[in-house]
Nucleic acid binder design. Structure first.
Length: 478
DNA sequence: GTAGGGTTAG
C-alpha cells in the first residue's frame, strides 16, 4: 500500500495495529500515526493502548491514554483492561474510579475488567458491589464468567454456585472456571461431580478443563482416578497432555508419596521440565521429608529461575540443618551477588470496605497494640489446648522468622486476629497473602477455628485454605 | 461500506 503511494487513514491504522508482534513494529507504526496527525482518533487511540498493553508496555499505554484530547468509553475500557490483564488491579481500579468521575457509565467490558481486578486482589466485597451492576446486563456470557471466577478466587463458592446455576448460557470457560475453582478451594469431589455433569450436558472439555480435573484428583489424593484421566485424555477428549498436565500428575504422585514414579515421569514426559515441574516435586519432598531429593529439585529450580528467593532460603535451611555451613554460605553469597531478597510476608484483609495490610515487622497499624495483646491471649489459650509452635523449618522457605517469638508475628496471624476483633463471629475471615503460609500459621488457624467457632479462608499465591472446625480444606498438603 | 475494548490454567 505504501509502495503504491496510497496514504493510510485511521481505518487502516486501527486495523493494522492489531497485527503488531513486537515493540519495534509498534513504535514504527506509532510514529507514522503521529506524522499523519491521526493520534487523536479514538479508534486509533484505543487500538494503540490495547496493543501496548498486550505487549506489556503499560507505561506507553498510559502515555497514549493520558494525552486526553479525545476519549470515549472504549478508550477507557482499553486502558482499564490493560492494567487488569497485566495483574495491576490497583491501577485498574483507580482508573475505573476516574472513569466514573469523568461521567462515563461502565458497560460489560468495563465491568469484566473491574471484576478481574477484584479477582487478582481478592476483593470480595468490592466484587459484590460490582455484581449489582452486572445484573443490569442480563446474561452476558463473558461478564458472567468473570463474575464466576471472581467469586471462586475470592473463596466464596456459595456465591459462585449461585451465579453458575443461574447462567442460562454456559460455555467451556464457565465449566472450566467452576471446576478449577472448586478444586483450588479444596472441594475436589464437587469438582469431579461437576465434570461429570459437564459431560452429561454434552459440553466438550478443553486443555484447561482437564487441568482442573487433574488438579482436583491430585488434591483429593485420588491417584487412580487422576492417572486414569491423564492416561486416557487423548482417547476420551482428543487432548494431548501438555507440560502442565504432567505437572499435575507429578504433584499427584508426589502427594501420594510415589516419588520414584514422579521422577520417572519427569524423565519420560518428552518436555524439558520447567521450574513449575520441579516445584511440584519439591512440594512432595517437603511433605514426605526427603531432604536429598529436595536439594536436587531446588537446584533444578534455581537453574531455571535464578531469582526465586524462596527456593534459596529453603536450600539454605536444609544445609543449615545438616551443619553444612560452607554450602549455607555459598547459597547466601549467590543470593547477594544476584541481589535476590525475599519479600516480607504480607497479608491483606478487607473489613468494612477498607483494606488493611499487615507486613511482618511493621507495627504501623493503628490497632496494633490491641491486636498483639489479643494474639498473645489466644496463643496462651491455644497452648493450654495442646498447641505447640511449629519451629521445624528445614523444608520451608522461612528466613529470619524462625524463632518461636517471631513466628508469633507472622502477617497472617495479625490479619486473623484483626478480623476476629473487627468482625462478628458469623462472618468468614478472608485473607490474601503474598507468600505461602507456613506450617505454624496453618496449625494456628486450624486450632483457632475449632476453639473460636470461626471460619477462616486464606488465599496464598498458589493454594486456598478453608479452615473450619479444626480442619483445612487443603488436607495439610501445600 | 471500511475500525477499537472483556472470560478459564500457570
Amino acid at each position: 500500500m505504501l509502495r503504491e503511494g496510497v496514504m493510510p487513514n485511521m481505518f487502516t491504522y486501527s486495523s493494522v495495529l492489531r497485527a503488531c508482534d513486537g515493540l519495534l513494529s509498534l513504535t514504527q507504526l506509532h510514529c507514522s500515526i503521529i506524522k499523519a496527525g491521526l493520534e487523536s482518533d479514538v479508534f486509533v487511540r484505543s487500538a494503540l493502548i490495547d496493543i501496548y498493553s498486550k505487549l506489556g508496555e503499560l507505561q506507553n499505554a498510559l502515555g497514549v491514554f493520558n494525552e486526553m484530547v479525545t476519549g470515549d468509553l472504549v478508550v477507557w475500557n482499553s486502558i482499564i483492561g490493560g492494567f487488569a490483564q497485566n495483574s495491576d488491579g490497583d491501577e485498574a481500579l483507580n482508573l475505573y474510579k476516574r472513569m466514573k468521575r469523568a461521567g462515563f457509565p461502565p458497560d460489560q467490558s468495563t465491568l469484566t475488567s473491574v471484576l478481574r481486578a477484584c479477582t487478582g486482589l481478592a476483593l470480595l466485597e468490592l466484587g459484590r458491589q460490582v455484581h449489582v451492576h452486572v445484573i443490569k446486563f442480563d446474561q452476558d456470557l463473558i461478564l458472567n464468567n468473570a463474575l464466576l471466577d471472581m467469586y471462586c478466587k475470592c473463596g466464596s463458592l456459595k456465591d459462585a454456585n449461585f451465579v453458575f446455576t443461574r447462567m442460562l448460557e454456559k460455555d467451556v470457560i464457565s465449566w472450566s472456571t467452576m471446576i478449577a475453582g472448586l478444586a483450588q478451594n479444596g472441594f475436589s469431589r464437587e469438582a469431579l461431580n461437576l465434570f461429570q455433569s459437564m459431560k452429561d450436558y454434552g459440553a466438550k472439555p478443553n486443555y484447561i478443563t482437564i487441568l482442573g480435573v487433574l488438579f482436583a484428583c491430585s488434591h483429593a489424593g485420588l491417584v487412580e482416578d487422576g492417572w486414569h484421566y491423564f492416561q486416557s485424555m487423548k482417547k476420551l477428549f482428543g487432548i494431548d497432555p501438555g507440560r502442565e498436565h504432567y505437572g499435575c500428575i507429578i504433584d499427584l504422585l508426589g502427594r501420594a508419596g510415589k516419588l520414584d514414579r514422579a521422577i520417572k515421569l519427569i524423565h519420560e514426559m518428552g518436555f524439558e521440565p520447567d521450574a513449575v515441574t520441579w516445584r511440584a516435586l519439591l512440594g512432595a519432598c517437603r511433605v514426605h521429608r526427603n531432604v536429598d531429593l529436595a536439594i536436587f529439585a531446588a537446584k533444578q529450580i534455581l537453574k531455571l529461575d535464578p531469582e526465586d528467593a524462596g527456593t534459596y532460603i529453603l536450600l539454605s535451611n536444609i544445609y543449615a540443618n545438616s551443619q553444612r555451613w560452607d554450602e549455607v554460605a555459598e547459597v547466601r553469597r549467590t543470593m547477594k551477588a544476584k541481589g535476590v531478597r525475599k519479600e516480607p510476608g504480607c497479608s491483606w484483609i478487607e473489613v468494612n470496605k477498607k483494606i488493611h495490610a499487615f507486613i511482618l515487622g511493621d507495627n504501623s497499624h493503628p490497632q496494633i497494640d490491641e491486636i498483639n495483646s489479643h494474639l498473645n491471649q489466644l496463643i496462651h489459650r491455644l497452648m493450654g489446648l495442646g498447641y505447640v509452635p511449629d519451629t521445624n523449618f528445614v523444608l520451608q522457605d522461612l528466613e529470619g522468622e524462625q524463632s518461636e517469638d517471631s513466628l508469633r508475628y507472622h502477617s497472617e496471624k495479625l490479619a486473623i486476629v484483626f478480623g476476629m476483633i473487627s468482625m462478628s463471629r458469623g462472618k468468614t475471615i478472608r485473607i490474601r497473602k503474598n507468600i505461602r503460609i507456613c506450617g505454624d500459621c496453618h496449625i494456628f488457624a486450624k486450632l483457632l477455628t475449632k476453639m473460636e467457632q470461626r471460619t477462616i479462608v486464606i488465599r496464598d499465591p498458589i493454594r486456598y485454605h478453608h479452615f473450619q472446625d479444626g480442619v483445612c480444606s487443603c488436607g495439610d498438603y501445600w
